[in-house]
Amino acid sequence: MNESSESLISASNKLIYISNAGVLIQLKDRKILIDGLCRSNNPIYKDPSPEIAQKIKGGIPPFNDLDLMLITHEHSDHFDPVSVDEFSKNNPGTVILSTPNVITKLRTYDSMEMDKEQANLIEFNLNLHQEETLNFQGMKIRIISLAHMGKNQEETQNYAYLIEYGLKLLHVGDADAVSENYNQLNLVPQKIDYLIAPFPYISIPSARRVIKDYINPQKIAVLHFPHKELDHFGWIKATRKSFANVKEAFIKTNFLEELGTTLIL
């Protein structure tokens, strides 16, 4: 973690940027890790550093006593079954929640030594735009199935998670920023404190309209940026240029690019 992260680590409500779309969220006495353990098949995206991955798997602070591990979908830049399996064995008290494909991979993984029927794995099998609510240790988790962005992703189950525990945070995974995904969710009255979303949500004008019309959070944290040295398509520069044109009139937005960056919530 960088120096600023270390100085902020004691704050009770914070978000630490861990990997490509991975964040550690601490809300008072609760800790949730979302998409933190990944091993991307595409090297342009950021895996957790070996040091951080080992800390997560070993339950070493600040990753000790995790209440929930949430995984948005099975793609390698969001989920590594080998790492999550190791984490699960070392941290049996942490509940892992995800899609059927993710949970099936964990239940059938060869090295799984725990009782596969008793492991703390929760599977929600949701149709597109269907949702469920889980009340867990005082937290309210709204699990929403949203269409994954990009072509040929119709079969990918992507879950967004709206976490409510004092604050309200929405992590959308790789959900497409289109009105069809959000126009029936009634999110604006929820007064969401933080939207956590991939960078196209602020780089594309139509996506920004979706945010304003259907989510309207207090703040935004954008991630899923490629490594700068591998950004051959110029996505980072294009995102910053596009956002600069609307920055003053748009919702306050934090760019999560450097692993270890910490936001006080």
Rank of each mutant, 00 (worst) to 15 (best):
Y182W: 12
N186T: 01
F124P: 00
L134C: 04
T108L: 15
V178E: 10
E132N: 15
A177M: 12
A147I: 06
Q137F: 06
V178T: 10
K191S: 13
P100A: 08
P100Y: 07
Q157F: 06
V172A: 06
L146K: 04
Y109Q: 04
M114R: 13
Y182I: 02
G150N: 07
S145L: 02
L126G: 02
K140L: 11
L128M: 10
I122G: 00
D176E: 14
I163M: 07
S111A: 04
K191P: 02
L167V: 03
E180F: 10
N125L: 06
A119F: 00
Q153C: 03
N158G: 08
S111I: 02
N127R: 07
L106F: 12
M139E: 10
N127V: 06
E132G: 09
H148F: 10
L162G: 06
A119W: 00
V178Y: 04
H148Y: 10
R142P: 08
I143V: 15
Y165H: 13
E117V: 00
T104K: 15
H171V: 11
E154K: 13
Q130E: 15
L169K: 07
V172R: 02
V102A: 10
D174A: 13
I103L: 12
L134D: 01
T108S: 14
Y182N: 03
L126P: 00
N127F: 04
T133E: 13
A177L: 06
E154M: 05
S111E: 07
N158Q: 05
D176M: 06
P189C: 05
N152A: 04
R107I: 08
H171L: 15
G138A: 14
H148C: 12
N120Q: 09
T133Q: 09
P189F: 05
V102W: 07
H129E: 04
G173Y: 07
A177Y: 02
A119Q: 02
L170F: 13
E164C: 07
S145A: 15
Y165Q: 08
S179T: 11
L106P: 11
Y161T: 03
S111F: 06
V178L: 08
E131A: 10
I143W: 05
T133K: 12
Y182C: 01
N127H: 08
Y165C: 04
I143H: 02
D110S: 12
N186R: 10
E132M: 14
L187I: 09
E123L: 11
I103T: 02
G150P: 05
A160I: 11
I144H: 06
I141Y: 06
T108F: 14
T104L: 15
N101P: 00
E117S: 03
L146P: 02
K191W: 02
N183S: 05
Y182M: 04
L167S: 14
H129C: 05
L187E: 03
Q153G: 03
Q190N: 07
T104W: 12
Y165G: 05
M139L: 14
N158S: 08
D110L: 11
L121T: 00
Q137S: 14
E123F: 09
L128Q: 05
V102F: 12
L146E: 01
E154L: 09
T108I: 13
L128W: 02
M112F: 13
E113I: 01
Q153F: 01
L128T: 01
A177R: 01
E180I: 03
Q184D: 07
Q157M: 15
H129G: 00
D115M: 06
H129N: 15
M139Y: 10
K191Y: 08
N158F: 09
N135T: 14
